[in-house]
């Protein structure tokens, strides 16, 4: 039986792992390669590396980091952050990334998704969507590290991304990110119902029960979190044991 995936996310800046609250107030949470290896040993199903400074600053080290991680890691990993061209994606895949996530560049020019899927296959193209809720518009998509409201409806954009060839949607609720109050069950469920590709829920995980909820109530295929794992608040194995006890299929 296909299992639900637990995915630690390593936000990297200048080659170090960091995680802030609502994308601000960054704290140093360690060396990405060492963290990656630790998570693989503890039973993480996948890893995501997001170069959170890449949209506004040049990244010279990301390809080298991907290579170092791929050399070490025997589970799949996704790389994202400021990736905007076919050449960017090719360099990351050639150096050992399994999947590449695109965000702002896809919103600026949605045809990029079609081009990447045709060139590399849908299975390695993830569209990362950052959504925030506000009245009266509901869930809207933001770009540029969460600074710019595109005015696009979150469900509609995720559906378009999947139709254009995205193989997976990484949906982050910016309204929940860093709060530890739980995932955004409503928008995650709505996107999961709207697309036929897997959906990774991100933003807001604070407890083991939050993961149970996002799998049982929002039908997410994977749950992603950062700080609760980086600072040892929840161990991956104990999280999976909790999920199994709740009747959720996991790899243990």
């Amino acid at each position: 039986m296909l299992t639900k995936r637990i995915i630690p996310c390593l936000d990297v800046k200048d080659g170090r792992t960091v995680k802030g609250v609502r994308f601000e107030g960054l704290r140093d949470a360690g060396d990405p390669v060492a963290l990656a290896a630790r998570y693989a040993r503890e039973g993480a199903d996948e890893l995501v590396f997001l170069d959170i400074t890449a949209t506004n600053q040049k990244r010279a080290t990301l390809v080298a980091l991907v290579r170092d991680v791929a050399r070490e890691l025997d589970i799949p990993f996704t790389v994202g952050g400021g990736i905007g061209t076919v050449a960017d994606v090719e360099a990351l895949l050639l150096n050992g990334a399994d999947k590449v996530s695109i965000n702002s560049a896809a919103l600026a020019r949605p045809e990029l998704i079609d081009e990447l899927a045709a060139r590399f296959g849908s299975q390695c193209i993830v569209v990362a969507a950052d959504a925030r809720f506000h009245e009266p518009d509901g869930w809207q998509i933001y770009t540029r590290a969460g600074t710019h409201n595109t005015g696009r409806d979150a469900v509609q954009w995720c559906r378009e991304a999947a139709d254009r060839g995205a193989g997976e949607i990484l949906l982050t609720s910016m309204s929940n990110d860093g709060t530890k109050d739980g995932f955004a069950l409503d928008i995650t469920g709505a996107v999961s119902r709207a697309v036929s590709v897997p959906v990774v829920a991100s933003g807001g995980a604070g407890s083991k029960q939050d993961f149970t909820n996002v799998f049982q109530q929002a039908h997410a295929d994977a749950g992603l979190a950062a700080s609760i794992f980086h600072f040892g608040e929840i161990g991956i194995r104990e999280l999976k044991e909790h999920l199994r006890a709740d009747g959720i299929p996991v790899r243990l």
Partner: peptide
């Protein structure tokens, strides 16, 4: 086949 409970691609860990 596309089915609501079975996303395509089949992506993840299976036994």
């Amino acid at each position: 086949p596309n089915a609501p409970e079975y996303k395509v691609p089949h992506m993840g860990w299976n036994n």
